[in-house]
Amino acid sequence: MIIGKLKEAIICLRAGRVTLRYPFEPSVVPEGFHGQPQLDIDKCTGCGACSMACPARCIEITDEADQRTMLYCLDRCSYCARCQEVCPEEAIVLSSEFELATDSVDDLRVTARFDLVRCEECGEVVGTRREIEKLAAEMPEKTGISVDQISWLQLCAECKRKRSLETARDLQAPEQ
């Protein structure tokens, strides 16, 4: 009985120290670790896909006047990385950061602001300026529709439907 216990102690002592001297030395996280999401504000277009995907509803979007505010409440984050998966711009990445203890919840909140574009006709929100500029820049080359034919990017869906006949005329293929 006692001999058994001694054997155990010997095994343990032979193994040496297995824990880190954390916090006196840094803890290195493995690859693929899901730490705090980090937003690259230069890449983000404010489309809101992350907000829709987030199961913990960390990302709140409010559209006011000419501004879209995206509030990342990282205190609620469950580190699932759905935002990273859906982000079309690769603007949000789960970092290796995990030392998040703080006295102030504001330290875990990130706000991003974007210029909004409202419908030229009715004032309904169309999207952020970045989204529309991106589409305007890419579309001619990708679709072959010339720049001056593209007239609808600043209109909401309903107003586009009302203008659909004019748009169709603009886009009309030449009659063979």
Binding site: C47, A49, V86, G127, E131, L135, A157, E158
Partner: peptide, 23 residues
């Protein structure tokens, strides 16, 4: 679909819409 809404803006005729939940 990731509900980014870019197709909604890109559509010339306004016939793509996000569903009621915006999803």
């Amino acid at each position: 679909c990731i509900s980014c809404g870019l197709c909604v803006i890109a559509c010339p005729f306004g016939v793509i819409e996000l569903d009621k939940a915006g999803k």
